[in-house]
Simulated scan of single mutants.
Amino acid sequence: MPGGIRKLALTAHVASSVGWLGSVAAFLALAVAGLSGQDTERVRGAYAAMDVTGWYVIVPLAFASLLTGLVQSLGTAWGLFRHYWVLMKLVLTLVATFLLLLHMQVAHRVADAAARGTWSGAELGGMRAQLAFDAAAAVVVLLTTTALSVYKPRGITRHGWRMQQAQRTHRSDGAGLDAGAAARA
Rank of each mutant, 00 (worst) to 15 (best):
R42Q: 15
G75C: 10
T97R: 03
L28R: 00
M1I: 05
H83E: 11
L92D: 09
Q38C: 05
V139D: 06
T118K: 12
L8N: 02
A33Q: 14
G37F: 06
K152L: 01
T53Y: 05
G75D: 13
A136E: 00
L66F: 00
W78D: 12
L67G: 10
G54N: 06
A107T: 07
Q105C: 07
H13N: 03
S36N: 05
T76N: 07
G160H: 11
L28D: 02
I58K: 01
G125E: 14
G180N: 09
I58A: 11
T145D: 06
L21K: 04
L94G: 08
G121R: 15
S36P: 00
I58M: 13
W119V: 11
A179R: 12
S17P: 00
V150H: 01
A77G: 12
F133A: 14
H83W: 15
T145G: 13
K7I: 09
A138K: 02
G180C: 07
S23T: 10
G34D: 00
A137R: 09
H83G: 02
W78P: 02
V57F: 13
L177T: 03
L177M: 14
H13V: 04
A62W: 02
G180R: 15
T93V: 10
G160Y: 14
S36T: 15
G117A: 11
S120H: 10
R168Q: 14
A26G: 15
H13C: 03
Y47N: 01
Y151W: 12
L131K: 04
L66E: 01
G126W: 13
V95T: 05
V18D: 06
G117H: 08
H159L: 10
L177K: 15
T76H: 05
G79N: 01
R184V: 15
R154H: 11
Q38K: 07
G174R: 13
V106Q: 11
G117M: 07
D39I: 09
G176E: 00
S36F: 10
L101N: 13
G180P: 02
A135W: 00
L80D: 00
R171C: 02
V141D: 03
Y151H: 11
W161S: 14
A25P: 02
A77Q: 12
F63C: 00
L148H: 07
H103R: 13
L101G: 09
S172A: 14
W55D: 01
L148Q: 10
V110F: 06
Q130V: 05
S65Y: 01
Y47K: 03
I58R: 06
Q130I: 03
A181Y: 10
G174H: 14
